[in-house]
Computed example of a mutant assay.
Amino acid sequence: MPLLAMCSVKGAPGVTTAALGLAAVADTWARVVLVECDPAGGDLMLRHGLAAKPSLVDLASAARGTGGDPAVYEAVTQELALGDRVAPVVVAPPGGAQSRAALPELTRAGQLVLSPPGRLVVADCGRFEVSSPARPVLALADVVAVQVRATADGLAHVREHLAELLDVVTGRLVVLLGHGGLYGEADVAEVLGRHLAEELMAPDADVTVLGPLPEDRQAAALLSGGLVAGRRWQRLPLLRALQGVAGELAPLLVTAPHDEAAGARAETAG
């Protein structure tokens, strides 16, 4: 199944929170698993009181020699409970050194463990940098969602990195607007479209803008482990907005068996 990679370009606009929210509200048939691929280390273990093992390191170890066998996830996922839903997650150690060592094994040539048959993988890749060890994950992804606040400085950082992102991303590039911005979806799409056409000379580049996500402290606290989910947790504004985002992304994340194109992406990432 497809791979959705999520990242930011600067600051902390809530990528891990949004990634967990998307994994939690996704249709059950997609069998979503959230994998922390942040080279700086993971947050879910400490936020939600999960065990230190199994982790991303164990996924990398189990992946050796198995190609895209989805059975590896049965041994390395942990269950993160949110109300009446359980989100399977692969946590990363808080320190980044182990994560940085594990990532190359997950993205080496021919390795399809991040887009296995029968599962939709959501990869939290942290902050995008040209030299990031998570760069090959972005290259493998069918969709890369870059989360940013629609402020003057936030959009400036997106424009600064847009050419680099387009060089890396082989799937669809999505700009996901977080809360606290000053501009709406149409305004941001116009700014980025003008930048693509006039500065990057790439008027045909396909960049989708979604959002903005609402400011919702209750949902953010729930997804950060600071609040227990009630019976109507999925009706909170942020979760409802993420359900809408999931619907917008669904056509780009079509369920399909692995084929030569998937193998080609793996070769590119390697």
Rank of each mutant, 00 (worst) to 15 (best):
L138W: 13
V137G: 08
E129D: 15
S132R: 02
A139M: 13
S131W: 14
L120I: 06
S131P: 02
L138Y: 11
S115K: 15
P117M: 05
V146Q: 07
A145W: 09
L138H: 12
C125A: 13
G126E: 07
S115D: 11
F128E: 07
A134V: 06
P136K: 10
S132G: 07
V122Y: 03
A145G: 09
R135M: 12
V121P: 01
V137A: 08
R135F: 04
A145V: 11
V146P: 04
L120Y: 07
V137D: 02
S131G: 15
R127A: 13
P117S: 12
R135S: 11
P116K: 12
L140G: 00
P136A: 11
G118K: 12
A145C: 15
L140R: 14
R119L: 12
L138M: 14
P133W: 02
P116I: 11
V121M: 02
V137S: 05
A134E: 00
P136R: 08
L120C: 10
R135L: 14
G126D: 05
P116L: 12
V122T: 08
F128Q: 07
D142N: 13
P136F: 10
V121I: 15
L140S: 01
V143I: 09
A123K: 03
A134F: 03
C125N: 08
P117A: 12
F128M: 07
S131D: 15
R127G: 03
A139G: 14
A141Y: 01
C125R: 01
L140Y: 01
E129Q: 15
G118T: 13
V130S: 13
R135A: 15
L138D: 06
V137M: 09
A123L: 06
S131E: 15
F128D: 04
G126S: 09
A123S: 10
S132E: 07
L120S: 05
A145N: 07
V146W: 05
F128V: 06
F128I: 08
V143P: 04
L120H: 12
S131C: 09
G118N: 13
G126A: 10
G126T: 10
F128C: 06
A139Q: 14
A123G: 09
G126I: 10
S115A: 15
G126K: 10
A134W: 04
A123M: 08
D124Y: 11
V122F: 12
V144G: 00
A141K: 04
E129M: 13
